[in-house]
Design a protein around this nucleic acid. Sequence first.
DNA 1: GTCTATAAATCGATAGAC
DNA 2: GTCTATCGATTTATAGAC
Lengths: 196, 196
Amino acid sequence: MTDVRSSQPAAVDQRSGKRERLVSAAIRLLHQQGVERTTLADIAKAADVPVGGVYYYFKTKDDVVAAAIDAHARQSATALAQIEARERSPKGRLKALMKEFAAQSELLARYGCPLGTLCSELDKRDGEPSLAADLMRVPIEWAERQFRALGREDAYEQAIDLMAAYEGSALLANTLRDPGILTKAAERYNQWIDSL
Amino acid sequence: MTDVRSSQPAAVDQRSGKRERLVSAAIRLLHQQGVERTTLADIAKAADVPVGGVYYYFKTKDDVVAAAIDAHARQSATALAQIEARERSPKGRLKALMKEFAAQSELLARYGCPLGTLCSELDKRDGEPSLAADLMRVPIEWAERQFRALGREDAYEQAIDLMAAYEGSALLANTLRDPGILTKAAERYNQWIDSL
DNA sequence: GTCTATAAATCGATAGAC
DNA sequence: GTCTATCGATTTATAGAC
């Protein structure tokens, strides 16, 4: 994955934290409004940075998006690592992931899955497998490791199946504005994990 | 659902079929490029209609999108009715739907599910349950009827589960550019249906 | 009734002031 | 090094010619 940190000016942003605020605002707005409908002015305003000043920290809008994706990937990896450290068994880890999904059901029903909507939108934008594909691989590979630890030969297929169930449930929960779709799907998956 | 046909000028477009071409082009481009990245110029060019002339047939871009959604809903309903007429048993009908999904795996891996990507994008656009929700309900209610005919009390939940599995698989197939994700998911669902 | 020419608005990006 | 003022490109929409 591209290291977006290298694109930041040298010896800059040590105190102000403006770049950090911009990335943080971008992550939130990209989720709520989508990539295409979020302007640099929106992001600058949310981060309390002068509108034109964004270009001091980033070369283009695409760079802002790339930085947001990169930061998001780190956040996801950290969250998954925390689950791995907290839960000892693969089953417990998978169930903890389901719990996280269910806990976000209200937000997901309102704005969709941050990861899923981003992948969907970036695919139209680039026309080629984008940075978002790497983002999607983070939870897939994590789940694959858990299934492999459970001794499943089809660990990759199971991981794909889990993420597909989650992403599909998030899409329907969002479209129909029904968080229950997500919580029920998580419950069902939990029962299935228990039955393994 | 709004009847978009009523928005077309009276006694117009009887021969030329330009409005029809515009809607047809809009459906295709909205799928391939997304709503936000498809301009009226794109649609007009694809339909071989003068760029500004679009406004004779539609009042705004949103009207073009609404007409495309409406036409798409009719197409889906027709396709599902054909399956219902062709296949006698609920199981056969559900399996026929899976077959249609699998048959489109290449297109879906390239551009995502037309329905899913549209719902995802329109949700960011409107901020409220959009016309696309009605579009999503078409296959859900169809599948619900089949599960009910199979005597399932949880017919609605099963229908949601089926569509979530499909939409999630389509999203992952698209993001990872792997049609196999869709065909495998369809296979697995077929086996499950057989086991009922 | 149909379409051309153009307006109006938005947004990404840049040049240069401080 | 940081940001303000502005440009230029794009796109939706309209006024009016034919």
